[in-house]
């Protein structure tokens, strides 16, 4: 597949994978670790959305579906499908080491391994997914926190996962 088209598709797939898995498993609801709470209230003070802030804090402070997506892509790039499964195990161990009580990282790594396998049939390579995931995480964490947190807040509301914190 053409490199640019493949990159765009890989970015969209990675973005949907980690945002849907993370939101569905409750990242915007509550901070899983202390750092996420700090990040969430800091973003709220800068006119962002609190649920989106918790989401960003959670993916910043401990391995969640974003890290799972990236590690699964790298694992599949190095070792094939087996690498994605090893990545899921490593993300789970990383979750325990970070004292993060979530399921999102492991789930995200497994769903991403499945997605990479499916989309390899239309020619999207694991390299494209590695690069696409970096671009996808940049749109959430790298450009403008308050704007992206409001977008995440809207997505969280539509999933019924909005935070109850004030």
């Amino acid at each position: 597949m053409d490199l640019i088209i493949g990159l765009i598709l890989a970015t969209v797939i990675s973005w949907l994978n980690f945002v849907i898995v993370d939101t569905f498993l409750g990242l915007p609801e509550a901070p899983g670790v202390k750092g996420a709470e700090t990040v969430g209230y800091s973003i709220k003070n800068r006119k962002g959305d609190l649920a989106g802030g918790f989401f960003q804090g959670n993916i910043l402070c401990s391995p969640d579906a974003s890290a799972g997506t990236l590690m699964a892509s790298i694992g599949v790039y190095i070792l094939g499908i087996q690498g994605g499964l090893i990545a899921a195990l490593l993300v789970y161990i990383g979750n325990r080491l970070c004292a993060d009580p979530g399921y999102a990282g492991t789930t995200g790594a497994l769903t991403m391994t499945l997605l990479i396998f499916i989309f390899s049939f239309i020619g999207i390579t694991p390299e494209m997914f590695i690069c696409g995931m970096v671009i996808a995480i940049f749109t959430i964490q790298g450009i403008h926190h308050p704007t992206s947190s409001r977008l995440i807040g809207k997505i969280a509301k539509s999933f019924g996962r909005y935070t109850k914190y004030e």
């Binding site: 087996q82 499964l85 195990l89 490593l90």
Partner: peptide, 24 residues
């Protein structure tokens, strides 16, 4: 609600360990 993965169960960490170690 499924938010707290410290609780061990047959469906959550067990198969992840099985397929991860097998993949190694």
């Amino acid at each position: 609600p499924i938010r707290f993965s410290w609780t061990k169960s047959a469906l959550f960490p067990t198969p992840v360990f099985a397929i991860g170690i097998l993949a190694i």
